Computed example of a mutant assay.
Amino acid sequence: MTDDLLERAVAYLLSVLPNLGPDLSAPTPCRDWNMRMLLAHMDESIAALREGLAGGQVRLTPGAPLPSYAGPLHIRSRAVALLDDWANEHPRSVVVFGRPVPAPVLGTVGALELTIHAWDLAATDPTTPPIPDRLASELLTVAPELVPMQDRWPLFAPPIDPPTPTPSDQLLAYLGRTRLS
């Protein structure tokens, strides 16, 4: 695993955001979630990561709803701020569910979360770029630890057969993802 995993995940997210359409009520591959709900979830995820890096603890409480004016530009600014936090001095470990977690593990979890949801946001567009091979390959090596086969529902669907052997499709298939028709 490389130290720049979170940075590459944010770079992928930033490459997807400018291509999103204006209809935030559009469906996503996340069951029963539209784009606005997914953006709100990403906002909460980024807030949790930033909280952990700033204060050494993630409280895991829901954040405020995504403001009605917020959209891809809001997520972009939050993701860039996360990169700034990651680049600066931060705790070596973060308390999550009352247990210390090494900061690099928090970064890996964040990388998986942001990468997969970036793909979810763009999955309705057939021209969506795949997750970059190196990023997908590295996330695929840790996905079974972060998203084990037991206890994955309702957060993740069961694995499916990947449509191609690319790292991107393999990672998405492991997480039960498929493009919307």
Score class of each variant (00 low, 15 high):
Leu155Lys: 06
Pro126His: 09
Val95Glu: 13
Ala9Arg: 08
Arg76Val: 03
Ser137Trp: 05
Asp120Leu: 06
Gly21Tyr: 00
Asp169Val: 14
Arg76Tyr: 03
Ala111Tyr: 03
Asp161Gln: 11
Pro62Tyr: 01
Asp43Pro: 03
Tyr69Ser: 15
Thr28Ala: 10
Pro162Gly: 05
Glu138Gln: 15
Ala79His: 02
Gly107Met: 08
Asp169Ala: 15
Met37Ile: 12
Pro162Asn: 04
Ser77His: 14
Leu20Lys: 02
Cys30Asp: 09
Pro22Leu: 12
Leu38Gly: 04
Arg78Ser: 15
Arg179Gln: 07
His74Gln: 05
Val101Asn: 14
Leu82Thr: 14
Ala81Cys: 07
Asp43Cys: 01
Asp23Gln: 02
Thr166His: 13
Ala70Gln: 05
Ser168Arg: 08
Asp3Asn: 13
Leu82Ala: 13
Leu171Gly: 15
Ala54Asn: 09
Asp125Cys: 13
Leu60Ser: 09
Asp4Gln: 05
Leu140Glu: 14
Pro126Cys: 11
Ser25Ile: 04
His117Gly: 11
Pro67Glu: 07
Leu112Phe: 02
Leu82Phe: 07
Asp84Ser: 13
Gly56His: 09
Leu6Ser: 04
Leu17Phe: 11
Ala79Arg: 02
Ala157Tyr: 00
Leu175Ile: 14
Gln170Gly: 07
His90Asn: 12
Pro129His: 09
Leu5Gly: 04
Pro132His: 06
Val94Glu: 07
Pro29Ile: 06
Gly55Cys: 11
Asn34Lys: 03
Trp119Gly: 12
Leu83Asp: 07
Pro104Met: 13
Tyr174Arg: 15
Thr141Trp: 12
Ala9Ser: 13
Pro159Trp: 00
Ala79Thr: 03
Leu13Ala: 09
Pro144His: 12
Gly71Lys: 03
Phe97Asp: 13
Gln170Arg: 15
Leu82His: 11
Trp86Gly: 10
His74Cys: 04
Trp86Val: 15
Pro22Val: 12
Trp33Gln: 08
Asp151Ile: 03
Gly107His: 12
Pro144Trp: 12
Arg76Ile: 01
Asp4Trp: 01
Cys30Gln: 08
Arg92His: 12
Pro159His: 02
Ala118Trp: 01
Leu73Arg: 14
Arg99Lys: 15
Val16Leu: 11
Ala157Leu: 07
Leu66Val: 00
Pro67Val: 01
Leu121Ser: 05
Phe156Pro: 02
Leu175Pro: 13
